[in-house]
Amino acid sequence: MKLYYAETLAPRKACAVARYLGIPIDYVFVDLKNGEQTRPDYLAINPNGKVPSLVDGEKNLWEADAIICHLAQRAESGLWPRSAQQQIDVVRWLSWNSQHLYRQGGSLYFEHLVKPWLGLGEPEPSNVAQAQGFFRQHASLLDQHLKGRKWLLGNDLSIADFSVAVTLPYAKSAAMPVDEFPQVQRWHDQLNAFDAWRNPFPARPAHAATQA
């Protein structure tokens, strides 16, 4: 298997799951700043020109949530639950995250980290305020859900945890108001106990450019 990645939000969850599972995999860095994602050979793998992408034999798979589902299933890991009802619950949280928490956390990540990396200037205060307001709304729902639960699905860690939490490592640097939500903090602290979560990306040569 080959996992094409950059050191950005969506690939982080794919790299973290791959490392957590200990899957033998070749990591291929895609230099976004130099436009490697738009080259014909990469577009043949992922026509969206985005990262991450996974090549597994004859299968080309894109979209980070699909990739982590595939990795967990291929490893026969409990990160993809056996119960049909829990599988539906995983899909619910993946969908919720893509439309809500990840969307607003991603906006703050863009304003505070991506814009400086690309030389696009300072964060736009109105965009930051709007994203923080929606982030609080969605984090409040998540905080309530986590009361009395160790993980999103209860006692069992799943790919939903890896997906929904993916913006949180950048909370401080991207001004996400996570400290207002104690259950979310507690849940993320549990993920931080895993080296695969804290250090998901493979080592690259020292001269390589670092992504935001």
Rank of each mutant, 00 (worst) to 15 (best):
Y42S: 04
D65C: 06
D189G: 15
C15L: 03
N46M: 06
L120S: 07
R149S: 11
W117K: 00
E111R: 03
V128F: 05
N60K: 14
V17P: 03
T210I: 13
R149I: 09
P205N: 13
T8N: 01
N155A: 15
Y5Q: 03
A209W: 07
L3K: 02
P123S: 14
A84Q: 15
A6Y: 02
A131D: 04
R92G: 07
S98W: 00
V166Q: 11
N155F: 08
P169Q: 14
L120W: 05
K13Q: 13
V55G: 00
N155S: 13
Y5N: 01
A64L: 04
I88R: 15
I88Q: 15
F135C: 06
V128C: 03
E122A: 13
E58S: 12
D89I: 03
L79H: 10
L101Y: 02
N199I: 03
A165H: 01
N155K: 14
S77R: 02
G106I: 03
R92V: 02
I45L: 09
T210E: 08
S126L: 14
G78P: 02
C69A: 11
L152C: 07
Y170V: 00
W62I: 07
G57W: 09
F181M: 10
A44K: 10
S158Y: 00
G121Y: 06
S163F: 01
E122F: 12
W117L: 04
T8R: 02
G148I: 05
A175W: 04
V128T: 11
D56H: 01
V166M: 05
Q144M: 15
S158H: 07
V17A: 04
Q211S: 11
P182A: 15
A212K: 04
S107K: 13
N60V: 05
I23K: 01
P24Q: 11
S98Y: 06
D189L: 09
R19I: 07
R149T: 09
W80R: 06
G105P: 08
D65F: 00
A209R: 10
P125L: 08
P169M: 15
H207D: 10
L43M: 13
G154W: 09
L168F: 04
L43K: 13
E180N: 15
V17H: 05
L21P: 00
R92T: 10
L61N: 02
S98F: 05
A129D: 07
A10I: 01
I25A: 07
W187F: 06
L141N: 12
L113I: 10
A6I: 00
P202R: 11
V51K: 00
Q85K: 14
H188A: 08
N46D: 10
A206T: 09
S77L: 05
L168W: 05
M1A: 11
S107I: 13
A84N: 13
Q87D: 10
S95P: 06
L141F: 09
L113E: 11
E124K: 14
A208W: 09
A160P: 04
E111T: 02
S53Y: 09
F29H: 11
D31M: 07
